[in-house]
Computed example of a mutant assay.
Amino acid sequence: MLTAYELHEFNRQKDSIADSLLKQVHGNSNILLFKVLVNYLEKTNISGLRLDNLDESIFKDSKELKERFAQILEHMATIAAEETEHSPTYTTGQLAKFFGVSITTINNWINKGRFIGVERKERNKQARISANTKYKAPSGEIMFVKDVVEMYNEAENDGNLNNSNELEFLVTQLAMYEGKYGGEYDKTLGNKPFSGMTPEEQTDAAAWRYFLEQVENVNRSS
C-alpha cells in the first residue's frame, strides 16, 4: 500500500529514478520498457496523460525520453496511491470528528507537517488525507490515521461517543493502559524514548496518548 508520504518521496525523486532506470536498461531494452508502460496506460484507460501523440522519434531525444519516463512514473505512483475500499481518504471535516478537534486545528496540523507527506497544494482546496497517512503527535509518537479512525468507530459502536458516557469510556481505556504498564503515561511509556519501544509499545503509546488528548477535549468542552 502506497502511503501519502511514500507518494511524496517518490514524486520528489522521480527524475533521478527515471534516469537511473534508463541507465540500467540499455538499447532495445529501455525502448521495450518504455513502450510497455505507454501501451499499458493507454489500454487500461486509467491515465489522463496524452501519450497517443508519441512516435519512434522520442528514442532519438534522450532528454525528452527521460522527461516522459519521469512523467509516466509520477502518474503511475498517483494511481497506486488513489483511494480504494481498503485505503479511503478523509476530508478535514471528517478528520476533525475522528480526532475530536476543530477543522482549523486539522488545517494547522497539515501546515505544520503533523500528517507526514501531506501538503496543501491549492490555498482554497480542501485536503483529502489517506487512511494510510502517518500522524505525528506532539509527543513524537507516530500512528496511522486509520488507527485513529478505528478507535473512533469502536467507541461509537459501543455507544460511548456523543453522550454522557464518553468521559467514562475514555477513563476506562486509560485505566486499562495504566494497569498494563503499571502507572500513568508520563511515568511509563511517556518517559521512554519512542525509538526504544517495541512495536506493541509504540502502538499502545500512540493509542494511550490519543485517549489522553480526547479526555482533554471533553474537559475543555464541558
Score class of each variant (00 low, 15 high):
residue 176 M to R: 12
residue 171 V to C: 03
residue 205 A to I: 10
residue 84 T to C: 03
residue 178 E to W: 03
residue 166 E to G: 06
residue 59 F to Y: 15
residue 205 A to N: 11
residue 188 T to E: 06
residue 104 T to G: 15
residue 54 L to G: 02
residue 7 L to W: 01
residue 125 K to S: 08
residue 112 K to S: 14
residue 51 L to M: 09
residue 100 G to V: 02
residue 152 Y to N: 10
residue 85 E to N: 07
residue 77 A to W: 03
residue 190 G to Q: 05
residue 180 K to V: 07
residue 116 I to M: 07
residue 95 L to T: 10
residue 118 V to N: 00
residue 102 S to N: 09
residue 96 A to P: 08
residue 102 S to V: 01
residue 91 T to M: 11
residue 154 E to K: 15
residue 19 D to F: 03
residue 101 V to S: 09
residue 165 N to M: 10
residue 31 I to Y: 07
residue 4 A to K: 01
residue 62 S to H: 13
residue 1 M to C: 00
residue 88 P to A: 05
residue 15 D to V: 12
residue 53 N to W: 09
residue 208 W to K: 14
residue 98 F to S: 06
residue 120 R to W: 05
residue 102 S to Q: 08
residue 177 Y to Q: 04
residue 201 E to M: 11
residue 86 H to F: 02
residue 60 K to D: 13
residue 167 L to P: 01
residue 35 K to P: 02
residue 7 L to H: 00
residue 160 N to I: 01
residue 192 K to S: 10
residue 82 E to V: 00
residue 155 A to V: 03
residue 44 T to A: 09
residue 82 E to S: 05
residue 185 Y to G: 02
residue 97 K to C: 07
residue 7 L to D: 00
residue 165 N to W: 07
residue 14 K to N: 12
residue 153 N to D: 13
residue 159 G to R: 09
residue 90 Y to M: 01
residue 88 P to G: 04
residue 85 E to T: 04
residue 84 T to H: 02
residue 61 D to G: 10
residue 93 G to T: 05
residue 108 N to H: 13
residue 184 E to A: 09
residue 181 Y to Q: 09
residue 122 E to Y: 06
residue 100 G to I: 02
residue 25 V to Y: 12
residue 156 E to G: 05
residue 119 E to L: 10
residue 213 E to R: 15
residue 87 S to T: 07
residue 2 L to D: 00
residue 28 N to G: 03
residue 119 E to Y: 05
residue 31 I to N: 06
residue 195 S to E: 11
residue 179 G to P: 00
residue 111 N to I: 05
residue 29 S to E: 14
residue 168 E to K: 15
residue 58 I to W: 14
residue 74 E to S: 14
residue 110 I to Y: 08
residue 89 T to C: 06
residue 56 E to Y: 13
residue 62 S to M: 10
residue 178 E to S: 05
residue 62 S to R: 13
residue 122 E to G: 01
residue 198 T to S: 15
residue 129 I to L: 04
residue 25 V to L: 14
residue 86 H to I: 08
residue 160 N to G: 05
residue 122 E to P: 00
residue 148 V to S: 01
residue 132 N to Q: 02
residue 16 S to K: 13
residue 211 F to P: 04
residue 15 D to M: 08
residue 7 L to S: 00
residue 24 Q to N: 09
residue 72 I to T: 11
residue 11 N to Q: 11
residue 117 G to I: 01
residue 104 T to Q: 15
residue 69 F to Y: 15
residue 157 N to C: 08
residue 27 G to A: 13
residue 123 R to A: 12
residue 42 E to Q: 12
residue 95 L to G: 12
residue 16 S to N: 04
residue 152 Y to G: 05
residue 173 Q to T: 01
residue 170 L to W: 03
residue 26 H to P: 00
residue 203 T to H: 07
residue 153 N to A: 08
residue 25 V to Q: 09
residue 57 S to F: 13
residue 99 F to P: 06
residue 57 S to W: 12
residue 119 E to V: 06
residue 83 E to L: 00
residue 69 F to S: 14
residue 135 Y to V: 08
residue 25 V to C: 09
residue 105 T to M: 15
residue 3 T to S: 11
residue 178 E to C: 11
residue 4 A to C: 02
residue 114 R to F: 01
residue 94 Q to V: 04
residue 130 S to I: 03
residue 46 I to Q: 13
residue 211 F to V: 03
residue 211 F to A: 08
residue 157 N to V: 04
residue 32 L to Y: 10
